[in-house]
Design a protein around this nucleic acid. Sequence first.
DNA 1: TATATCCGAAACTCACAAGTACCGCATATA
DNA 2: TATATGCGGTACTTGTGAGTTTCGGATATA
Lengths: 209, 209
Amino acid sequence: MTQLDLTDETTGPPPKLGRKRDHTRDPEILQAALDVLAEEGYEGMTIDMVAARAKAGKATLYRRWASKGELIIDAVACMKKSDLDFSQLPDTGTLRGDLVGMIRPHSIEDGERKLKVMAGLSSMLARTPELAEAANAAIVEPRAAANRFLIHRAIDRGEVAPDVDIETISLISPSMTAYRVLVLHKPVDREYLISLIDGVLLPALGITP
Amino acid sequence: MTQLDLTDETTGPPPKLGRKRDHTRDPEILQAALDVLAEEGYEGMTIDMVAARAKAGKATLYRRWASKGELIIDAVACMKKSDLDFSQLPDTGTLRGDLVGMIRPHSIEDGERKLKVMAGLSSMLARTPELAEAANAAIVEPRAAANRFLIHRAIDRGEVAPDVDIETISLISPSMTAYRVLVLHKPVDREYLISLIDGVLLPALGITP
DNA sequence: TATATCCGAAACTCACAAGTACCGCATATA
DNA sequence: TATATGCGGTACTTGTGAGTTTCGGATATA
């Protein structure tokens, strides 16, 4: 113990010799983890599957993540990046136009994938708060947030009464699509989403199309 | 091969000697399986846990079910028994009265338990159609069926327009409570259920309270 | 009472997956 | 160029859980 732990700061960079870690591979590995997670679930996923799909060695994965659990948390957290920011949400002048404008092939596909990951995780969520937090931030919250934003704008326009239960109503479409995919195993297509908008969401907001 | 397989019929009762199997224990074992399932999930549940909780030997379980998978399917199917039949649904004269009348401590507790089991199963549902079918019949369908029944009666009374999307609207409350419990991990209490009825369900049916 | 089966309990086999160690090669610093 | 590290790949160790077997004791038929 001569001069240990006295490095400059933030887990100081001890040496700088030898080959550097290729961090461009991190996203590929996390993507592979998400693929396996969506197909096999938390327990069904093995590190070997992830390594094989990422064409990486198992040791490489363990050099970067301490355990399977940490890898999964990182993988789930990295889904958040595919989120759309509010500035590029549709702005058609009517709430219905905005909601319908959000239905695009990519967003449907993306949503379905996220739900499959969520299904694979769900038995763990109750026992792993860290994972539950990551899943909520990456999968759940973004969808509700977009709906909240659009409804608030509709209230500002005077299109919707200001006393509606925004929280609950923003969760209608995430909840019902999740249920439809995970429990009912029925497809979520444009037709279904529009029937949700016209048959449930807008009426609940007092708009009768 | 002298006279095998020539028993009278329906997998004939071969002998009738020795101690008989005590089938009164079956429900206890299935209950234990559901308890563990709700707490640990499909993969987290072990046969030893179930046997221990049921105070039974592991061999006893394997004498009655060929595998863990079959035990779980049977356990899920046996949840269906706690269902209420239509004849004892509330009949208050208004849809809102009927829906509110369905909110009882027991039904909330029962629903929460079923959802926890569902959460434990969800990673398997996509890969095990037999399980998905059992889960749907035991957990999902009964709740939707009750709602459908009440809405149909409201239509017959003229309280609700006959052209509403009964299928979708009957799934609002099951979907959103499931989402709230499984994904949001928030409690489902009387207040929340009433806000769902008054803020979403009735408006979607064209009733403005 | 003799026999066959069930019971709970515990020991066992077997397969599989997390995590580790090592190989030969690639790539970086000094 | 010498050294130290990361790389993909493979073999290994270890723990755990499904399913099987065995045991002494209980309970049924004949």
